[in-house]
């Protein structure tokens, strides 16, 4: 079993501004661990995490891929999260290349068809549309969970760009909850982009029914 990355350098104060790893994070970590042999066999070079927050997931991915070394690119719209991502990389002896960015916007020009592994634990909680918009504009912690209608407004913006980013053998792991309408989400990616998918892991945690979905060509 691969241990959860060391986050002892982060404090309560950091978690006032940055999402603290919780059950949804672990659904993604456990899925990645389960997928380890397949991920390594892809021989990836470039991994991209959207909304990296504490940096826990990318730090974990680097352990999953060992001894393979990859480039970890991490974006977050929250400047404090970008800083935490970098410090979590240092704490766990992996270079996490963080940037303050909305989704993958500044990378899409150069990384067209070049990203081997994409990870996204999005703001998936259904809220009013305005609440999600405002959360994204404020670049704070609410942006890590407020998802707008069906909890899909931020995710949907990213889903439109996934196909352009993925390398021919690339894979994309997305965290979702039941309220996101997982069957519709999957069939939408199939019909719009011919991306296949499978549910790698699903688990009930309190009121949430969580999924990690993998998309691939």
């Amino acid at each position: 079993m691969i241990p959860t990355p060391d986050l002892s350098h982060l404090s309560r104060k950091d978690y006032d501004d940055v999402y603290e790893p919780a059950e949804d994070t672990f659904v993604l970590l456990d899925a990645l661990e389960q997928e380890a042999p397949k991920l390594k066999s892809l021989n990836p070079a470039v991994c991209l995490e959207i909304g990296s927050g504490s940096g826990c997931v990318s730090a974990f991915l680097s352990r999953v891929l060992e001894p393979l070394v990859v480039l970890h690119l991490c974006t977050d719209i929250n400047p404090i999260a970008a800083r935490c991502t970098v410090s979590t990389g240092l704490q766990n002896k992996v270079s996490l290349n963080a940037m303050i960015s909305d989704l993958a916007s500044p990378l899409s020009f150069r990384l067209h068809g070049k990203v081997d592994v994409i990870l996204f634990n999005p703001p998936y909680v259904p809220t009013w549309s305005e609440e999600a918009d405002e959360a994204q504009e404020r670049h704070g912690i609410a942006g890590s969970w407020a998802g707008g209608l069906s909890g899909m407004e931020v995710t949907d913006r990213f889903l439109k760009t996934v196909d352009q980013l993925l390398s021919p053998q690339g894979v994309f792991y997305l965290v979702a909850i039941k309220e996101n309408n997982v069957p519709e989400l999957r069939s939408g990616m199939q019909s719009r982009f011919q991306l296949q998918s499978e549910i790698v892991l699903q688990r009930r945690a309190g009121r949430e029914h969580l999924y990690t979905i993998k998309f691939f060509r």
Partner: peptide, 11 residues
């Protein structure tokens, strides 16, 4: 700043 690029745009 502090080794982190800010790639955000104004609305």
């Amino acid at each position: 700043s502090n080794g982190i690029p800010n790639m955000l745009l104004a609305e």
